[in-house]
């Protein structure tokens, strides 16, 4: 039984292929302006990597903000549900999931099966989302991926007084002009983003174990800052960025099993995939 999960985010597109509930392959690409194109491209890469063909996928669940535009999905699930499910699959003791995405942030409390009990979500304000990091990386002319390493060379001697991304950007430019170390500035930035995301987690009554998912979790500086902001030990999962896609592939298993129980197969007309 081969299933797939496809997570089309604002910045990246992710695909995961599973066989009998074990991961066969995964891919992450930078999202293009067209979600349909990103979805096809990332799934094609994942299929190649798994050494299978598109036709072998029996069921695909789409998630992420571009989920409705995935041409080959059989059904969709919310990002919240997928991140909860994926996190418990990656780490069975996880009960709180903090996910910082490209343009949103979420804190999710889950039960032992990965079902969502409660969540808080922010996509109304750029502060506390990956976009904050991206904007500052642009204005400091450094790579987003380098921010973690750079912050590792700094210390926590600075604090940003502004929470708003627009005001913080001005504040950061002033700090640079004052001759402050970039590494210290990035540390302060990480803490500001983390504090904002952590305030969501407080709204769901944080329950251990806590894990961080989303591409931002790969930034070691952000990870440490979030741990400080939450005040509890934060656990790593092996694949934070594809966590949502893993959850989607798991939902695909459920859906497929239900179909098979009823003696049906996924409708290829709906899916756009040729399913045997």
């Amino acid at each position: 039984m081969i299933t797939a999960g496809c997570d089309i985010g604002s910045l990246t597109a992710k695909a995961v292929i599973m066989k009998h509930g074990e991961m066969l392959s995964s891919e992450v690409i930078r999202a293009s302006a067209l979600p349909e194109k990103s979805a096809l491209e990332v799934m094609k890469l994942a299929v190649e990597k798994a050494g299978i063909s598109m036709d072998d996928i029996e069921y695909c669940v789409g998630t992420g903000y571009g989920r409705k535009h995935i041409p080959f999905m059989n059904s969709t699930e919310s990002e919240i549900a997928c991140h909860g499910r994926g996190a418990v699959w990656q780490m069975p003791s996880a009960r709180t999931v903090v996910d910082i995405g490209g343009q949103d942030a979420k804190a999710i409390r889950v039960d032992e099966k990965g079902n969502v009990e409660r969540y808080e979500y922010n996509d109304k304000c750029a502060s506390g989302t990956g976009r904050f990091l991206e904007i500052i990386a642009d204005s400091l002319e450094i790579k987003l991926d380098d921010m973690g390493d750079i912050s590792g060379r700094g210390s926590e001697k600075l604090t940003l007084s502004n929470q708003c991304v627009v005001f913080a950007e001005t504040e950061i430019i002033s700090l640079v002009n004052e001759g402050r170390e970039i590494a210290d500035i990035i540390c302060a930035l990480h803490q500001a983003v983390a504090n904002r995301a952590a305030s969501l987690a407080k709204g769901i009554l944080l329950t251990p174990d806590a894990v961080m998912t989303g591409g931002v979790a790969k930034n070691s500086g952000m990870f440490a800052a979030l741990e400080r902001a939450l005040g509890v030990k934060l656990h790593r999962v092996d694949n934070p960025q594809i966590n949502g896609a893993i959850g989607a592939a798991l939902f695909a298993i459920d859906a497929l099993e239900l179909l098979k129980k009823n003696g049906e197969t996924a409708d290829p007309a709906v899916s756009g995939l040729k399913i045997k």
């Binding site: 343009q103 109304k124 304000c125 750029a126 708003c164 991304v165």
Partner: peptide, 17 residues
């Protein structure tokens, strides 16, 4: 503003979005 017939709307008030 005075010349607009169909003002756009924004999903979020956030300056960045």
């Amino acid at each position: 503003s005075a010349r607009s017939k169909q003002p756009v709307t924004f999903a979020s008030a956030c300056t960045v979005w």
